[in-house]
Design a protein around this nucleic acid. Structure first.
Length: 549
DNA sequence: GTAGGGTTAG
């Protein structure tokens, strides 16, 4: 066996790994071993990479052991790539501290080592450790900035991602398409349309046509900031639509309540010869749910398996159950749960519980809540929903008991928070929150708004207030919900005809929904609310969800 | 010929 020969083996293995043929790569490695072909650092690096890519961490340990036992004596230089992949191996198998130990002990490190360690921290959600490492990096490159910015975004720290992105530009680093994708996802999280549009201008100069990631993220940013038309504009101008682009656009239509557009786009996707995946069906089922298209939902649910061999997962079932419940077809939903090929878990029960609320079915709600209390005792949503169901039936004592149970178990309700962007600043409000510097003015505006919408026929739905208190106090509580504060602020600050875009971390409350419909008529304003589930476009006294959400 | 990355759904 001469030297040239093992080069060919190595090339074959790395070719397999790069094409995703993990098993073939490993088979070839075994053949090399049994034929006595000399193994070098390239062999081990490729094979270890195959194990890590395939999630075969146990095997990667044996390969590593083999390298130590039977491999060549690595110099610190030739050990470098092997150690680099081992950093990734340790972090991907959840052992970041071992990765760090190896990293610290390495006699020689290069930019790959630093970036691998950085990604390790980011994947483990140890963002502060990642940041500390990042600031200590001696060999900073574009990839490190990208990992750090998207790390912030994926851990709910989008503001810091945007700040880091600006710092990156200030230091003269040119962002790649992936980096743009990451920060644009951050703008989408924040609902910061202004920042998103500035990035759009930058990425146009850069040419997002060449990067599907940037284009897809741009599209999603517009959709999540409430401007579905601009999202569609991006969609039609992109040169290479991939399945992510189609999924994103279908999802955008669905979230905004345009179920039929979503379905039409899905059909167009099929005509273009793009293969739908499980996410496509998830988005199309969501689109049906948001519009109450029960028959269509059923159809797609059956269609995905029959025509595309995609077995519906728990998430697909949960969507269909949600859809059936909202349409009042509770018993069908229960039958569907019975027929599932796996045991129902909490997401299935959550869908059924939400459905029993829509239909005011207290007995069912109790039964389902009981299962959820056992399965996920710390999920705040169960307590809130159950308490809501009792309150709306006027059973305040039982509602209070549920909340006591919640307190006793130390479960905290996520506080409602709404935010709005005004002249490039994001202003956030909590319910009944006096923290904002201009809150007095906002409250006076809300009183005026209330007087006006009451004249136009708005009646507060005090059933939606959880606490037992005087009727007038309940009305007051409703009028100070976070979404109302944000809208009041918007009416006060934004130009006269400008649409008001508000974001909320929870679902919009039924009373606020009714109030905002009247507001949109009273002030001739378009009001767009993104809640945790979907968008509501209020215009001329109506909402795009058609009171169905 | 080697090692490190992103976008959709929730």
């Amino acid at each position: 066996m001469n030297g040239k020969f093992d080069v060919v083996w190595n090339a074959m293995i790395s070719g397999y790994v790069q094409s995703g043929f993990i098993a073939d790569a490993l088979a070839l490695f075994r053949e090399m071993v049994s034929n006595g072909i000399p193994l070098d650092e390239f062999t081990y690096t490729s094979v270890l990479s195959a194990c890590v890519n395939g999630g075969l961490f146990g095997l990667s340990k044996s390969v590593h052991a083999h390298a130590i036992r039977a491999g060549p004596n690595f110099s610190s230089y030739s050990a470098l790539p092997v150690n680099n992949i081992l950093i990734t191996m340790y972090s991907k198998s959840g052992k970041v501290e071992l990765a760090r130990k190896l990293f610290d002990d390495m006699p020689l490190k290069d930019h790959v080592s630093w970036n691998a360690m950085l990604s390790g921290y980011v994947d483990a959600k140890l963002i502060d450790d990642a940041l500390a490492l990042f600031h200590g990096m001696s060999c900073m490159n574009q990839m490190a900035w990208m990992v750090m910015t998207s790390g912030f975004v994926n851990n709910g720290r989008a503001e810091e991602a945007l700040a880091l992105f600006n710092m990156m530009r200030g230091k003269g680093f040119e962002p790649c398409g992936f980096t743009y994708a990451g920060v644009m996802a951050g703008c989408a999280d924040l609902g910061s349309l202004t920042a998103g549009m500035q990035l759009h201008a930058q990425v146009t100069r850069y040419g997002y046509e060449s990067s599907n990631s940037a284009g897809n993220a741009l599209l999603t940013m517009y959709a999540k900031c409430g401007v579905v038309e601009d999202a569609h504009q991006v969609f039609v101008t992109m040169c290479n639509l991939d399945s992510v682009s189609w999924n994103a656009m279908i999802s955008a239509f669905g979230q905004h309540g345009y179920g039929l557009d979503a379905i039409n786009l899905f059909n167009e996707m099929l005509l273009e010869g793009i293969y739908p995946d499980r996410i496509t069906f998830l988005t199309i089922l969501s689109a049906c749910t948001h519009c109450g298209l029960v028959d269509e939902g059923y159809h797609y649910f059956n269609y995905m398996e029959r025509h595309y061999g995609i077995t519906p997962g728990e998430d697909h079932y949960a969507r269909l159950i949600d859809l059936l419940c909202r349409a009042g077809r509770i018993s069908e939903a229960q039958n569907l749960i019975q027929s599932m090929p796996f045991e129902p878990t909490s997401i299935i029960w959550e869908a059924l519980l939400a459905g029993s609320r829509v239909n005011g079915d207290v007995d069912l709600a109790l039964e389902v809540a009981d299962r959820l209390f056992k399965a996920v005792p710390h999920l705040d949503g169960t307590y809130i929903l159950l308490s809501n169901i009792y309150s709306s039936e006027g059973r305040y004592v039982e509602a209070a008991n549920v909340r006591k149970l919640m307190r006793d178990r130390g479960v905290k309700k996520e506080p409602g928070c709404s935010w709005i962007e005004v002249s490039n600043n994001v202003h956030s409000f909590l319910a009944d929150d006096m923290g904002h510097p201009e809150i007095d003015m906002v409250c006076r505006v809300l009183d005026l708004i209330n007087a006006k919408i009451t004249k136009l026929g708005y009646k507060p739905n005090t059933k939606l207030v959880l606490h037992a208190m005087e009727e007038r106090d309940k009305e007051y509580v409703l009028s100070r919900h976070s979404e109302r504060l944000a809208i009041g602020f918007g009416l006060l600050k934004l130009p006269v005809k400008a649409p008001i875009r508000v974001l909320k971390n929870l679902r919009i409350c039924g009373d606020c929904h009714a109030a905002i419909m009247v507001m949109s008529r009273a002030f001739g304003r378009e009001i767009i609310v993104r809640d945790v589930k979907r968008f509501h476009h209020f215009k001329d006294g109506e909402c795009s969800c058609g009171n169905y959400w």
